[in-house]
Amino acid sequence: MAAIYSLYVINKSGGLIFYKDYGSAGRMDTNDSLRMASLWHSMHAISQQLSPISGCSGIELLQADTFDLHCFQSLTGTKFFVVCDPGTQHMEGLLKHIYELYTDYVLKNPFYEMEMPIRCELFDIKLSQAIQKDSVALLSR
């Protein structure tokens, strides 16, 4: 019973800087996850061009047949998106929380180089705690 299937973080130029899988069937290999990330980056940009009203900031929620994809874009262009079960609630909150963790444990890490893949132990730990807490909260609901 996985509520959240995977989490991606893409930098402002569409490169995948973080990917974590939480038990989706048929794991994606590294090349595929990189392709997915840059494909999503482009789709996000095209959706802004097709908007009938000005001020569009890209896709926030994609509802597929077997999953929902929630996307959050920070002001600097970094995109966070989670793949979860259809109809999972409170994903915006989780994404904001993940963004907070990113600013605290990645951006404030003096050894982290901007726009490069994230390799920060503390971020990993805090992230798995947040996801776990979220799935526990989901189970109790």
């Binding site: 069937a25 494909l39 999503w40 095209i46 994609l62 047949d65 999953f67």
Partner: peptide
């Protein structure tokens, strides 16, 4: 083009089939 690509994205991302 957007729909075509989004469809290939969802087909590949589908977490329920291997």
């Amino acid at each position: 083009g957007l729909l075509f690509s989004l469809k290939s994205l969802t087909a590949k991302m589908d977490p329920t089939t291997a």
